[in-house]
Design a protein around this nucleic acid. Structure first.
Lengths: 340, 340
DNA sequence: CCTGTTTCTTTACGCGCGTAAAATATTTGT
DNA sequence: ACAAATATTTTACGCGCGTAAAGAAACAGG
């Protein structure tokens, strides 16, 4: 009974519908009459046929593929947001394909090239940032409907969706100031992306607002191994007695995780208790931050909103809605834990 | 000069070579004469043409795509191994595509369906394990050359490549016994995959060998949130005073990370020092294990060897070499840190 | 220089599906 | 019940490339 169906022609025959109508169904099940749709779906259950993806996409101007590109998939933050982006894309009837630049600008360009040849309906791109090849990105955005997320590079693509880094740092600095010593700020001297610069500036602004003297500790280190950079930088800073406050706000959670390790190795007790020497806070709401020792106080991205907004904005643009370039920055939520 | 090339016909014209030869070149650059290859590559630089992937794959029996499927991409362990697999695939001239089952058996089946329609040259599959739909996996392996890695489910696919869980646990148990109290074993009652069972058994064997009484603490918890399961299970075990030894060997690093958090929350100092109450060790060499407090003693997968062996084995099979089903299990390397 | 081999060109067909146009059937509104 | 609106069928072409076959050209070796 279930002799294998080889192509749409055969499937159309067994379902008693003409091939063009079947084709129409696969491109949009809602575009055929309900009774027709029912007959097709009945046949679909009986015969287990799937149209050939390659033949489909060859003639379509617009594929149903959505490219999702993140700078570093082994960072659980990106893994998490990528997962949510995937979900929303699937829910919207698209086929997400995941790529990682693995922290390498050359790979980022390669990924973009691969993506171009996939003729995706759209791309959700979190650029590497500072190291990105701006021209390559710009050219890519000209060819493919691209929404930038997480970290903005110029005013590129259809729009930008990310977090409000100013609010992030302002909010957590406020909290730290009101609950103890005003924090100093722990960051990488040459950070990977512009978010870090916004956070530093926001820290400086907030400190000025409260009338405190700011102190920025900028540590050495290149690449995406933030934990190790934070750990080594932490040791260095302790050695040179660079921390002018007992409270340290880190530019991001991964740096904070490394700093916590350094604190442990220096035998410095971190937390809010009387027996603790310093307080440490991060920023990002990294999936791992709950499980550090002590658990890390941080300000978290609104993962759901960021990813949902990103997907919605992209699809609005794809489906013909023209709107000027726009930047959406969502607020973060303070997560109070033991570290600060 | 660089008027856009629309298809292979046009590109063949501008490069002064016939289309079938150009086609041959793209399928295997080494299959054409050196002088011909040079002319094509010269034109390639000047005109920036890339063959249409969809048209290419429509007629090829064997795509150059390799599917890489992991159970949970947001677990840095899988992210890391996926990254290495990707690298080796690219080096071999294939195009890896990454998928995650996100811990959901239904999604795993969906991924496999998607993959089937991509007609990949091969698939590197790390199954969910216990929750996997065995029949669906088996059927998939019949249709597509599939190599199973990380966690084996029956004798499915072309071969299995993973770590030697017996050696893992035996080795680290040995270490713990020789440096302090014999460990008890901390695990999930219903673990996600069979590796956990092997590790438990290996623990029991090792303890018998050393003449110690084994103690297995099996904690409740479902799903892939191992850290939280370990944390809650840890609290529960402390409450019930379930730990019969001051040394705890965890079934995996993520569980250990959760347990460390529980220890912190219980105000129990972990480590090797005299001021420490207990020792905790993990298994896997999780990317994060270096940055726990204290840094986690663990036994690490040989990420490079596992991924390289997996890719090599798959390609050997793809390229026609028939060999019987085989299981390769690689030894782990003990990583001594402060936690034990 | 000639022969045998390898590589390339020419010609031609097919893959599975998108899609357009015209004819026909079905549904909808009144 | 009938005209108008909508959906489906029929027919037909094209997309970009894989690939097969036969003949022409380039190459290697003696």
């Amino acid at each position: 009974m279930a002799s294998k169906i080889r192509n749409m022609e055969e499937f159309a025959t067994v379902s008693g519908i003409s091939r063009p109508t079947v084709s129409k169904y696969f491109n949009d099940p809602g575009s055929v009459r309900a009774s027709t749709r029912a007959r097709i779906e009945l046949a679909l259950e009986r015969y287990d046929y799937r149209p050939n993806i390659y033949a489909m996409n060859q003639n379509r101007k617009l594929t149903k593929t959505i490219g999702v590109v993140v700078p570093l998939l082994s960072d659980p933050y990106f893994a998490e947001i990528a997962r949510k982006l995937e979900q929303y894309c699937i829910a919207a009837g698209y086929r997400p394909t995941l790529f990682s630049s693995h922290g390498d600008p050359a790979l980022e360009v390669e990924v973009l090239d691969t993506l171009r040849s996939l003729k995706p309906a759209g791309v959700l791109l979190a650029p590497l940032g500072r190291a990105s090849d701006r021209n390559a990105l710009k050219k890519f955005c000209d060819d493919v409907p691209t929404l930038i997320f997480d970290s903005s590079v110029d005013e590129i693509g259809l729009a930008f969706v990310g977090s409000d880094n100013f609010q992030f740092t302002s909010h957590i600095t406020d909290y730290l100031c009101r609950t103890g010593e005003a924090p100093c700020f722990f960051e990488m001297k040459t950070p990977a992306n512009p978010n870090a610069h916004r956070r530093r500036q926001s820290y400086l602004d907030a400190m000025a607002r409260f009338g405190h003297k700011p102190d920025v500790i900028s540590i050495e280190g290149e690449g995406w191994g933030f934990e190790e950079i934070g750990r080594l930088g932490g040791h260095e800073a302790f050695k040179k007695d660079r921390f002018s406050s007992n409270t340290i706000l880190c530019s991001n959670d991964r740096l904070a995780i490394g700093l916590l390790t350094a604190c442990y190795e220096q035998n410095i007790r971190v937390g809010r208790g009387d027996d603790c020497a310093i307080r440490v806070a991060g920023q990002d709401g990294h999936p791992h931050s709950r499980y550090t020792c002590p658990p890390l106080t941080t300000i978290s991205h609104d993962y759901d909103s960021v990813s949902q907004t990103a997907v919605k904005t992209l699809f609005a643009a794809i489906e013909g809605q023209v709107s000027p370039w726009k930047s959406t920055r969502l607020e973060g939520r303070l997560i109070l834990r033991d570290s600060a």
